[in-house]
């Protein structure tokens, strides 16, 4: 049985069917990339995995335990499932270190000193040592996103969800953040990420899942899905994002 298992998950907002029966299997220590156009349901799926959204149907299991059970311990699940958002969502009134140490202290009950020591160490690993006392608004986008990553990691999650973490960044900062994700993969963290960075997906993902209109159209090893897609919709999407990708590298500065 897979470490994270999603079966026939449905989610609807008003009359908009965002997820129409999604299946997904993620093994432990695996990196899975969700690709697909905006509005295909990637973010919603990730938010369902973190229980920020309640599914309308279907089952999600984490390590054999159903987390979609209404009686599931929501806060306990979120302790194990970290998420990083596209817009960072750091706490603007807290310093970087307090952002990172808050949840370990309040949720895990770690003493302040230990939480701050662990936080400082983590920040150091992502090149943010000198930013520990700064407030988020004094940081660049790339730095903020790395702090958001560190904040999620400080809870030692068993799965990390990344929701288009590079979409708001310019190409230089994208590199910073992706390098951090590469490190996490090397350490064996299980990661599910929604992304528009096709070359990154090809390089890092064990599996790529293509979502279209709330359904998994195609999934398989990264190379297979990205190079020889079997579904025409996948092929069309890849051709389109490849064209924009070329345009981007041509001009250099158009942010995704």
């Amino acid at each position: 049985m897979a470490f994270l298992s999603v079966r026939q998950v449905r989610k609807r907002f008003g009359t908009n069917d965002v997820l129409r029966g999604v299946d997904l299997e993620v093994e432990a220590h695996e990196v899975v990339c969700l690709i697909g156009a905006s509005g295909s349901g990637k973010s919603t799926l990730l938010r369902c995995l973190n229980l920020l959204e309640t599914v309308d149907d279907g089952v999600i299991e984490l390590d054999g335990v159903e987390i979609t059970d209404p009686q599931a311990a929501v806060d306990a699940v979120r302790r194990d499932v970290g998420i990083v958002f596209q817009a960072y969502n750091l706490f603007p009134h807290l310093s970087v270190l307090d952002n990172v140490a808050l949840a370990p202290r309040k949720v895990r009950g770690t003493p302040r000193r230990d939480a701050e020591r662990a936080g400082t160490e983590l920040l150091g690993r992502f090149g943010l040592t000198d930013k520990a006392d700064a407030h988020p608004d004094a940081l660049s986008g790339g730095q903020q996103q790395r702090v958001a990553l560190v904040r999620a990691l400080a809870m030692r999650p068993r799965v990390l969800l990344l929701d288009e973490v590079t979409s708001a960044l310019d190409p230089l900062l994208v590199g910073e953040v992706l390098e951090a994700v590469r490190d996490l993969k090397r350490e064996g963290l299980t990661i599910v990420m929604a992304t528009h960075e096709m070359s990154f997906a090809r390089e890092v993902a064990d599996h790529v899942v293509f979502l279209d209109d709330g359904l998994v159209v195609e999934s398989g090893p990264a190379e297979e899905v990205l190079t020889t897609p079997s579904d025409p919709r996948t092929a069309a999407f890849l051709a389109r994002s490849l064209r924009t990708g070329e345009k981007r590298s041509g001009f250099g500065t158009i942010a995704g």
Binding site: N50, L52, D75, A76, R78, R79, G82, I83, F85, A87, N89, L90, F91, P92, H93, L102, A103, K106, V107, R151, A152, M155
Partner: peptide
């Protein structure tokens, strides 16, 4: 709402998120 979401997504309870994340920003 994203501030609520990031608080809750870290496993903070509703009350803790309100007290430590939302209220300080609201009062300011």
């Amino acid at each position: 709402p994203t501030q609520w979401a990031s608080g809750r997504s870290l496993g903070l309870s509703y009350a803790t998120t309100l007290r430590l994340v939302v209220l300080p920003q609201a009062v300011r």
